[in-house]
Structures are given as C-alpha cells and as structure tokens.
Amino acid sequence: MNYLDQLEAESIYIIREAYGQFNKPVILFSGGKDSILVTHLAMKAFLPGKLSLPVMHIDTGHNFPETIEFRDDFINKYQLNLIVGSVQESIDQNKAKESAGKSNSRNRIQSITLLDTIEKHKIDCALGGGRRDEEKARAKERFFSHRDAFGQWNPRGQRPEIWNLYNGRYNEGEHFRVFPISNWTELDVWRYIKRENIQLPSLYFSHEREVIFRDNSWIPVSEFIRISEDEKIIKKTIRFRTLGDITITGGIESTASTIDEIITELAEFKRGERGNRSDDKTSDNSMEDRKKEGYF
C-alpha cells in the first residue's frame, strides 16, 4: 500500500473508533486545511452514508472574512450541522478577558469558549486536526487524548496507547480529544489535497494584501489589530501557511498560486509551518502550557 493510502486508512479507522466509542463526538473546524482534511476523511469514513457528526467552530470574532465565507459555503455544500462557540459571548459574560497587547489576541481565551461549548452541548469527544509534526508538545500527544473534568491535558500522566486498541473510557465531566491525522506531515496533507482535489480557502494561495511587518512576519492589516506609529502599512504578495486568527497569523512572501507550486515551495522550505504564528512564540513551551489549559 502507498503511504498516503496507509495514512488515509489509519485516519478513517480512528474516526470510526471515535464514532463507535463516544456518545456525542464533534469535529473541530477552524476553516484551516487540517480541519478541512479531517472533515473530508470523516465524510469518506461513512460513505455511502451521510456524515452525522456535527462540526464545531470556535469563533473568536477575529476571523479572516475569507475563512467565514469558506466555512458557510462548506457547511452548505455538504449539508453539515454546525455548532458555533462564540468568544465574544464569553467576553460579554465576563468569563474571558481580552489581552491588552498590540495584537489584541484572543488566541488564549478561546480555550475558555471551547470548554464551555463542549460542556453546553454535552460533547464527549472533539476530533481535531492536530498533527505531531507541527510542534514539539503536539509530538507527544496520543490519538485518543484524555481531558480531565477541567478540560486539562496531563502530559506527564497520559494513558498508554497500545497497538490500535484505543481506550476512550471516561468518567462524568471528562472528555477526549481525538487526532485522526496525528501521523500526517505538512507535505502529506498537501499531496493528499492535490490527489483528492480538496477545496481550500483562497488565503492559502498567493495574493496581494496590505500588511505590516511584526515579529518577523507579515501580519495582515485588519480592524482588530492596533498599529503603532512606527509600523508601516505596505502591499505584499503573500500567502498563509497556516490559518488562525487574523491578528496573529503571519503570511509568507510567496508567488505559489496552485497546489503544485505550493508542494514545490514546501519541499524547499527551511523553516517550520508554525514559524509565522505569534501565538507559538510567546515562550518556548507556549503550546504545552496552552494545551494544559484546554487549548486545541
């Protein structure tokens, strides 16, 4: 079997295990390529039947307009159930407080909304597009990753995960995060997107945009960021390698406008995928710390 077929079969096996073991599994959907891939695989897993799992979007309010447009088209096209958790609502209810920094980032507080939404809808399993090659804390994650009653990940006390026998048993109030594409690399994802002709938001492809240079990357100009006087707004031809909030997602200078060009570009890249995400740069262990709090 070719390695992409092997990865695909493994992911579908894990999605079906999640469906078989949990009462209310959902797919975490951000509009980024990895969550689109997980949804695509989940649809395949139940063919010729229809995907019964809802997709869940944690809406920080700081979105790229293109992402929301893509999300709505995607939901419509495949007739999926959408659950939205709103960070703005958490802020209005005084459950979360925005950070004061320049980027006005809502990245960290979205964990609060995520856990709230999980509780509200009695969700016991959230399938996510996390990949082990993305980041060193994610490299440590299980396929079936247990979260305690506070939504916390305990990296020091993970359950052993032997062979393909996934233990999804939990006590009241606890839940699981399941990562079906743990073993895919960034390049695998793109090669599969090409093979399957999967549609993606236009943001992944090269386009012209107003940006400022901040923390070594090109941050898009939007109504949500605070631009200081010494920061200059310029036009650049860029594309995004990952998609997060518009306030923290840096673009890379690129002319790659097709999947083939992106694959060629990636093979020559010398820097990691999340290097332009300022949420990962606050400290060396920022991903681990956020994951302990319930971050996806």
Binding site: A137, A139, K140, P155, S182, T185, E288
Partner: peptide, 28 residues
Amino acid sequence: FTDGLRDERTQGITIDVAHLYFSSPYHK
C-alpha cells in the same frame, strides 16, 4: 529535538513518546 516537554528539558530525561517524521529515498 525530541524532548519537547518542559519537565523533560529541565530534568534531561524523556517522559513520554515523541513522534518524528522523516523520509529517505527508500522509505517514509
């Protein structure tokens, strides 16, 4: 390169499995 958790780095030991990916011309 593989000890990614804070406790692993401060103690200089590996606590849990890290997964790493690479290709050679022969295998993935």
